[in-house]
């Protein structure tokens, strides 16, 4: 199972990086959001996939799943949600003001 997860994470990373390297702003934002998803899966996989019952004392199982990575992922999801939505608003505003979403044209001149 870990192998398939690793492959999936690798593919998500590859697609995310490919999107970030493109010129269109919208694709770049989608790329960053894919990258963060990949990282969350990585976090989940690094702490071993399901090894026991839910970490509640009432379960009375012989082994429990480690709850820490899930807490970390939840925190990270919230942060990336906020950042991505801000990024979208910023991109929209920039598109309105600057009239382009092509990163080549957003290079900026040295003197202004």
């Amino acid at each position: 199972m870990e192998l398939y997860m690793s492959l999936a994470i690798g593919i998500i990373f590859a697609v995310g990086i490919y999107q970030i390297l493109s010129k269109s702003l919208l694709r770049i934002i989608l790329g960053t959001s894919l990258l963060t998803h990949g990282v969350h899966l990585l976090l989940l996989t690094m702490s071993r996939l399901k090894t026991g019952a839910a970490p509640l004392l009432g379960e009375e199982a012989s082994s429990y799943v480690d709850p820490v990575p899930q807490a970390l992922i939840l925190t990270s999801i919230v942060i990336s949600f906020g950042v991505t939505s801000f990024f979208f608003v910023l991109a929209y505003k920039a598109y309105q003001r600057l009239g382009t979403d092509n990163m080549e044209e957003l290079r900026g001149k040295y003197d202004e």
């Binding site: 990258l35 963060t36 976090l43 690094m46 950042v83 801000f86 600057l98 900026g108």
Partner: peptide, 27 residues
């Protein structure tokens, strides 16, 4: 607006790497 787009992109990527590094270390 133009500079913030770049600044944000750089920092999002480095934050992503931060979480990845934390994941490896925790694992």
């Amino acid at each position: 607006l133009r500079e913030t787009l770049k600044y944000m992109l750089i920092n999002i990527i480095s934050s992503t790497l931060f979480v990845a590094a934390v994941a490896y270390l925790y694992g």
